[in-house]
Computed example of a mutant assay.
Amino acid sequence: MIKRCVIGVSVAALLSVLPAAAKPLRVKFGVLRQPHSSETLSILDLPAEDDTLAGALIGVADDNTTGRFTGQSFEAIDEKLASGEDAVAAAQRLLDQGAIAVVADLPAGDLLRVADALKARDALLFNVSATDDSLREEDCRANVIHVAPTRSMLADGLTQYLVWKQWRRWLLIKGSHLEDELFAKAIRASAKKFGAKIVDERIYVDTEGGRRSDSGSVQTQRLIPPLTQGAGAYDVLIAADENEVFGNYLPYRSFDPRPVAGSAGLFPTSWDASHEQWGATQLQNRFRKEFRRGMNARDHQAWVAARMIGEAATRAGSADPKALSAYLLGPDFSIAAFKGVRLSLRPWNRQLRQPILLSDGRMTVSVSPQEGFLHQTSELDTLGVDKPETKCRLQ
């Protein structure tokens, strides 16, 4: 009897702060996702068939828990692109099926094309995977909300920890792909920002081998030691390897015994399947029970996007994209994401403020922003491009 009373009071308290729904409201959003490469260095990193979608489905279930009390229901429509399929046409199909928003797991170029195509239809686009700073800067769009962190946020999260540890001298090894250079650029900017020093920089050229099928004579003991030899005195070996060509070969194979960070070793991420703090175990357990695997960063970002849609629709009492956008960008919006603080949007470029986890793949080693890195508005704004430096002019 006591338990029933407590539950009744909790529901009453919830309903008292929510707008009364004039009629049942059904909210649909699409999940537009690209196929991810299975060319990974470790068989443990092979992408799941339901990658990204699984997080959105858990988010929909959470939205519907609240929706049962407010007369609202939520539905996610899956649209997985085939290789070479046009993302714009797929996004249009989702809107034709009644989606008022699209949770997008797309590369930067496709994301921009979809954003421009959907502008005339007043649909919101939630970016849950592209980390390109340009999407929040010179190529920013008013109808795109960025749940995924930027490369500069990831780099700053890692740098703050290394500087806090007084590991300020780095050897940077980058891959030969464009994405590797973009991450290396973020690392260089972060080192300058927080007072670290890159003592040497080297390039690992992708020979397009079979990766996991290579015998070891190409990319392991015989190649890594000379690549890392003669760099002088340094504290940490930083890898910029977004295409997973060489980064995981660096630990235990470098010429000097040094920790590895960046794309391997200690890596910055928005989420990791090993994260347990601040009640995250509850979400991890639910996810694992439902999908029989760990929750990765794309899954979590899709979950956050689904929760943002649910929260905005509930608070605004509407499924109108303009009403949702107004609430999300307003002063009252914040959302819990099992990361220690409530998250909010940077109104000048639509980027979600969030802590950055530092993980070794087995556990969370630390969480940035680190102690002592202060900001006049939010310590989360010490991560990434801040408002005074932004190049964003929303279109």
Rank of each mutant, 00 (worst) to 15 (best):
C5M: 13
I7D: 12
G8W: 06
V9W: 02
V11N: 10
A13I: 08
L14Y: 12
V27Y: 01
K28E: 03
P35M: 03
S38D: 10
E39P: 06
L41M: 12
I43P: 05
P47S: 08
A48G: 14
E49N: 07
A56I: 00
D62R: 08
D63I: 00
T66D: 12
G67I: 00
Q72A: 09
F74N: 00
E75G: 04
E75S: 02
K80F: 04
D86H: 03
A87D: 08
V103S: 01
P107D: 13
D110P: 07
D110Q: 14
L111W: 03
L112Q: 13
K119P: 07
R121T: 06
D132L: 06
D133P: 03
D133C: 07
R141F: 12
H146A: 06
A148S: 14
M153S: 11
D156T: 11
G157V: 03
Y161R: 10
Y161V: 01
L162V: 04
L162M: 03
W164N: 14
Q166P: 00
R169H: 06
R169M: 01
K174A: 12
L178A: 15
D180E: 05
F183N: 00
K185S: 12
A189D: 08
F194W: 14
F194C: 05
A196E: 02
A196Q: 04
I198Y: 03
V199C: 01
D200P: 07
I203N: 05
T207V: 09
E208Y: 10
G210N: 11
R212L: 13
D214A: 13
S215N: 13
R222K: 14
L223N: 14
I224F: 05
P225D: 10
G230Q: 09
G232K: 10
N243F: 07
F246D: 01
R253N: 15
F255L: 05
A261C: 06
A264L: 09
F267I: 15
W271F: 13
Q282W: 06
R286G: 13
F287K: 05
K289F: 03
K289P: 01
R292N: 11
M295H: 02
R298Q: 08
H300G: 02
A305G: 06
R307I: 00
M308A: 09
R315H: 01
D320Q: 11
D320C: 05
Y327K: 01
L328E: 02
G330H: 02
A336S: 15
G340F: 09
R342N: 11
R346P: 07
L352Q: 08
L358S: 10
S359I: 04
S359E: 04
T364K: 04
V365S: 06
V365G: 06
V365C: 05
E371V: 15
F373W: 11
T377D: 12
E379K: 15
G384W: 05
K387F: 10
K387S: 14
P388D: 11
E389Y: 15
K391L: 13
L394Y: 10
